[in-house]
Each structure stands twice: as structure tokens, then as C-alpha cells.
């Protein structure tokens, strides 16, 4: 049985008297334990809504979501769901709870009722992983945009969730920070954690094994990065190719075919092969 099962799920936001908005529409999708999935699509296509459905923050208006067999609508198990599905929100300001950074990161593990030394171990690990150890005694509210994002990621890492959902968690990071965080993600994937990375960065999406694309609340494309990037639906989903792949395509249109390119490395190799 897949670890995450989304079965015919819809979600409706009530807007005002008599007006509502269906943000997710009859979505069916399953994700196996240990998968590394990128979730992408136009602004407003339903990605963040889906993320909040997955960790039980929202309940499906229709259909059902099972996490390791537990329904997210099961109020008695909600604590279990939250513990298993950790989420880094799109706006890190929504996420800080304590004043000191280390307390903020410790908040989750403390709520799990873990022993003191285990909490300390986890906080150390998480702060280290995002490169914020030296800031641990600092005020969590008084950070730059990218620093806040790092602390938010650390807070979720310290929970050691089975499923990690990152909602545009790298959007404010500098290139080095982005690489660091993606390095941590890859390590977590190697350890068997299921990762769902919501991103508008196509190079980052290409790092995942599977890319799921939403469009107006529905599933539009689901496949490997190279399948998705060669899909005829790509443009209608508001997406583009990663820069190197886009250039390879332009060169092909000029008669120079360097083959399928998803990474910069494969671009360079393709060019070199042709020139040899």
C-alpha cells in the first residue's frame, strides 16, 4: 500500500456569502514511502492547499487522504498525522513560535514529549543541517528573509517526520543556501524519508525522481523530470524548461542536436560530444 493515498479529493474555500472557490478538484494520486517528488504548477493551482490537506491542517471537502493508512479526517489520529507529515510553510513568519532560535527549533520535539538529551541532539542536528548553529541564541524574529527560511526548515527537520513537505522553502535563499538545503533533502531521501518539494524552480524540480504538475486544482502531468519537460502540456501549466534545457532546445531548432538535456552537466557533455 502506498504511504500517501489521495483518493478523489476536492477542497473548497468559502469566500463570502454564497461564493466559494474550489482549489483542489477530484484529485487522485499516490506516493510511495521514500519517494522524492517535486510538486509544481501555476500560481493558484492548488499546491499549498494540497500540502495543508496532506498534514491534516485542512480536511478534504470530498474524498479521502490516507497517510500510512490513517485518514487525515480522523480527529483521534490527527496528532499522529502531524508528527508524520512535517511541513515548511511558504511564509516562514507564520512558523516561528518562540523567541530564541534554538527554542523555536526545539518546540516540535518538545511537544512530542521526547527526553531532554534527544531534543538537544535533534536541535543540534537540525541547526547544523541548515547552517544556522552560530545563530542559535539569537532572536528568531530578527533575521533576514533567507535566515528565517533556514530556521523554519530546521524546525521541521528536528521533528524527524516520515514525510517532509517543503512549500517553496528555498525561494528566498541565496544560491549557496539553496544548494545546502537541497543537499540536506537528498540526504533525507537517502535515509528513506518521503519528500515533497513544492517549487517554481525547474532546476530544483529536475532533482526529484518524479514531478507532479497541478493545473487549476487538477492533476495535469505526472512523470519523471524528462517526461514532464518534454510534455506538450508544459507551457499551458505556466512552466518552462530549466535554462540549460531551454538552450539545448534552441540549438536544436538551429540544427544542432545535443540530445536530451536536463542538467547543466549533460548540456556540456552534449556539446563536447558533438565537437569531438
Amino acid at each position: 500500500m502506498p504511504f500517501i493515498e489521495i483518493k478523489g479529493v476536492s477542497y473548497v474555500y468559502p469566500l463570502r456569502e454564497g461564493v466559494s472557490l474550489k482549489a483542489v478538484k477530484n484529485l487522485t494520486l499516490s506516493i510511495e514511502a521514500g519517494e522524492f517528488v517535486a510538486l509544481t504548477g501555476m500560481n493558484g493551482s492548488g499546491k499549498s492547499t494540497l500540502a495543508k490537506l496532506l498534514n491534516g491542517l485542512f480536511k478534504p471537502t470530498e474524498g479521502e487522504i490516507l497517510i500510512d493508512g490513517i485518514s487525515t479526517a480522523d480527529e483521534e489520529r490527527i496528532f499522529d498525522i502531524r508528527r508524520r507529515v512535517g511541513m515548511v510553510f511558504q511564509n516562514p513568519d507564520n512558523q516561528t513560535v518562540a523567541t530564541l532560535i534554538e527554542d523555536d527549533v526545539a518546540f516540535g520535539p518538545e511537544n512530542l514529549g521526547l527526553p531532554r538529551d534527544e531534543i538537544i541532539k535533534r536541535v543540534d542536528f537540525a541547526l547544523q543541517a541548515v547552517g544556522m548553529s552560530e545563530y542559535r541564541k539569537r532572536d528568531a524574529a530578527k533575521l533576514s528573509g533567507g535566515q528565517k527560511q533556514r530556521v523554519a526548515i530546521a524546525g521541521v527537520l528536528a521533528m524527524r517526520p516520515d514525510v517532509l513537505i517543503l512549500d517553496e522553502a528555498t525561494s528566498m535563499l541565496d544560491p549557496a543556501g539553496r544548494e545546502e538545503v537541497m543537499g540536506v533533502v537528498r540526504k533525507l531521501v537517502d535515509q528513506g524519508i518521503t519528500v515533497i518539494n513544492i517549487t517554481h524552480n525547474m532546476e530544483e524540480a529536475a532533482l526529484a525522481k518524479r514531478v507532479v504538475v497541478l493545473r487549476k486544482g487538477r492533476l495535469a502531468i505526472d512523470g519523471t523530470p524528462s517526461q514532464v519537460f518534454s510534455s506538450s502540456l508544459l507551457e499551458s501549466c505556466g512552466l518552462t524548461l530549466p535554462p540549460a534545457a531551454a538552450l539545448a532546445k534552441e540549438l536544436k531548432d538551429s540544427g544542432i542536436d545535443i540530445g536530451t538535456v536536463t542538467t547543466e552537466e549533460s548540456f556540456a557533455e552534449g556539446i563536447c560530444k558533438l565537437l569531438k
Partner: peptide, 13 residues
């Protein structure tokens, strides 16, 4: 200040 962060690729362009 980072005006395109969070925009989809088409929106960003």
C-alpha cells in the same frame, strides 16, 4: 526586493 520569488516560471518571465 526579490520580486519574482514565488512566481511561477511564466509569471516570472
Amino acid at each position: 526586493d526579490e520580486p519574482v520569488a514565488g512566481l511561477d516560471p511564466a509569471g516570472r518571465a
